[in-house]
Design a protein around this nucleic acid. Structure first.
Length: 276
DNA sequence: AAGGTCGACAACCGCAACGAA
DNA sequence: ATTCGTTGCGGTTGTCGACCT
């Protein structure tokens, strides 16, 4: 028995939305909200559309906080960096990659970023890697890291020997960190393990220790007021070099064990900490 | 001017995860 | 514990306008 369809496709309108439909949907949601039920919404709002279609139209186009228009160079860098760090879904595990990337691009939607990636950025990355291969000669392997990304890592992590070692390992084995973990757990276990940073007297944070928060690890980030800012399970490996001699870093107060990952080239680096 | 090609973007599809009953 | 409806997501297709031949 097949799956029941979410709506009767013969009874709903498909294709591009008219301004009238947009207006109807917008007005309804402004007045009543989504009601937590997209399937029932079009009927209540008087729209001859599938609930999924309404949801998509709202999330990708009609929401008031959507940023329309071209991507900036900074946004390009964020996407490229995160894509290289998180990897693609083609590595056979379930990773909500676009939603993770979009969470660092306020006002952008996953559909926007996905389209932009497929139409432009993928080619940009390919061109970078191709030129890199030509520089090394035709027999040289192509690193999964574009040269500018490698530069970013070195810029942010300096000459920390563990970080340099990790980067070299990834490049020599032609794997992204995530792919490394997924394809070969034995190799992953040879990477530096998590370190516990003891509670110490206040002092400046410094890029002093290397640690790796592994794929699937639980993490938690505390905000300055002690509340939990974010938690979940890591969906990509982060090679990092941050630890902290006190609990305050970039205005975020950490407690208990601390380890972290920092995506380079972001205005607000992502800091990960182990839940105590 | 007409037809073909390409790129950008909107929209749809199907699957997996989630949660309530 | 199981079922089933709903949501969220990535992959893919469709459409339209710009550009090229």
């Amino acid at each position: 028995m097949g799956r029941a369809p979410c709506c009767d496709k013969t009874q709903v309108k498909r294709g591009p939305w008219s301004p009238e439909e947009d207006s109807t949907l917008k007005n309804y949601i402004h007045t009543f909200g989504t009601g937590g039920n997209w399937i029932a919404l079009p009927h209540k709002a008087g729209l001859k559309r599938c609930g999924k279609s309404c949801r998509l139209r709202w999330l990708n186009y009609l929401r008031p906080d959507i940023k329309h228009g071209g991507f900036t160079e900074e946004e390009d860098n964020i996407i490229l960096t995160l894509y290289n760090t998180i990897g693609s879904r083609q590595v056979s595990i379930t990773v909500a990659m676009w939603s993770v990337i979009v969470s660092h691009l306020p006002g952008r939607t996953d559909n926007d970023v996905k389209n932009y990636w497929n139409s432009k950025l993928k080619k940009k990355l390919l061109a970078l890697n191709t030129s890199q291969a030509m520089n090394f000669g035709s027999t040289a392997p192509v690193s999964p890291f574009a040269p500018e990304l490698v530069d970013n890592y070195h810029h942010y992590y300096g000459n920390n020997p563990d970080i340099v070692s990790n980067m070299n390992y990834y490049q020599q084995n032609l794997v992204l960190p995530q792919e490394l973990l997924v394809s070969n757990p034995a190799q992953a276990s040879s990477l530096p393990s998590l370190v516990e940073v003891p509670d110490q007297a206040a002092g400046p944070c410094e890029d002093q220790a290397s640690s790796v928060l592994a794929f699937g690890d639980e993490y938690r980030v505390w905000s300055g007021n002690g509340g939990v800012e974010d938690d979940g399970f890591l969906t990509g490996l982060i090679g990092s070099g941050f630890s902290c001699t006190n609990h305050l870093l970039n205005g975020i107060d950490f407690q208990g064990k601390i380890t972290s990952g920092v995506y380079p080239n972001l205005a607000n680096p992502l800091i990960f900490a182990l839940a105590p």
